[in-house]
Design a protein around this nucleic acid. Structure first.
Length: 293
DNA sequence: GGCCAGGAGAAAA
DNA sequence: TTTTCTCATGGC
């Protein structure tokens, strides 16, 4: 009898796993030697890859079924029409043509609020490869073992309670730098007001952002990342060094204040500015990297 | 070895 | 209210 491997398959266009996982929104996916992506999402471990216009997902520690299908459909944002979205962005800002073409398979994943909060606290003043490293260390130390391949054990991202119960001196051993205190304080704040943060999704954008800004280690940029990647708020526009660079170059905003830049972005991209930001970030960073080589 | 990173917080202006 | 300084760590 065949060893039956159950997989989940979607027909997709406007989706490129490499772009999705390398555009700075997800930190727990890696490319295997077989050209498939292996990653941890919540308490799931899965392999995924593309064959022509099909997205294939092989859950490694869950049964493939309706529930799994629904989960991954939501995770990859498959119900959104990215063709129309890109067309609208192009109408609003034709200069985006290069970035839209370069990152044509980008999608904004629907990820976990707490994981995004912690991950982007760690992201501040750090390189992406190092952020990945720190997320793995946090998971190995405070997450749950959820799967094993040979000698390798996969860990879920820590729960708020698990991190809130950590000791600062133990956390410090992980080499998070000065952000370790932010991680601990914020994990404790979220644990202490779990219902309040659960209700964040129901607040207006500005109210939710204001609430996030009360957290230790969360400033305007990190708050926008949490809103965009962890709360599905696509009107968020995180401005980091790369995005700032490309905005200045494209729109001659050298002398513009932060407020003026925000107003410009709002007027130009409107409710789709979160997506615009992601295309811009990926384009700018990848092209700078290729120049450096 | 200096520079920089998906910046934030605190002090200073 | 807006600018400047400092912060821990490691890849390049």
């Amino acid at each position: 009898m065949f060893n039956e491997v159950k997989m989940i398959a979607f027909h997709v266009i406007n989706l490129d796993l490499k772009q999705i996982f390398e555009c700075g929104q997800a930190f727990r996916w890696e490319l295997t030697t077989e050209g498939k992506w292996l990653g941890v999402v919540g308490n799931r471990v899965a392999l995924c890859w593309q064959e022509e216009e099909r997205l294939l997902i092989e859950p490694l520690n869950h049964e493939a079924g309706q529930r799994e299908t629904a989960f991954w459909r939501h995770y990859f944002d498959l119900d959104r029409d990215y063709e129309a979205l890109k067309a609208t962005l192009y109408e609003r800002s034709p200069d985006l043509e290069d970035a839209l073409a370069f990152g044509s398979g980008i999608r904004i994943l629907n990820q976990d609020f707490f994981e995004m909060t912690m991950t982007f606290i760690l992201s501040s003043n750090n390189h992406i490869p190092r952020i990945k490293q720190l997320v793995e260390r946090l998971s190995e130390s405070y997450g749950q073992p959820i799967h094993r391949i040979g000698e390798r054990v996969f860990y879920s991202f820590p729960s708020p309670e698990a991190l809130a119960g950590a000791q600062l001196e133990d956390l410090r051993q992980l080499g998070l730098g000065y952000r370790d205190a932010y991680v601990l304080e914020t994990a404790r704040a979220i644990t202490a007001d779990a219902k309040g943060f659960e209700a964040l999704k129901k607040l207006s954008f500005q109210e939710a952002k204001a609430s996030l800004l009360t957290l230790s280690g969360v400033g305007p940029k990190v708050a926008d990342c949490i809103l965009l990647f962890g709360l599905g708020r696509h009107e968020a526009f995180p401005i980091d060094t790369w995005v700032k660079k490309t905005l200045v170059r494209r729109y001659q905003l050298e002398a513009a204040s932060q407020k003026a830049i925000e107003a410009f972005v709002e007027a130009r991209f409107g409710d789709l500015k979160g997506f615009a930001q992601q295309f811009l970030f990926y384009f700018e960073r990848e092209n700078e990297r290729s120049k450096a080589k």
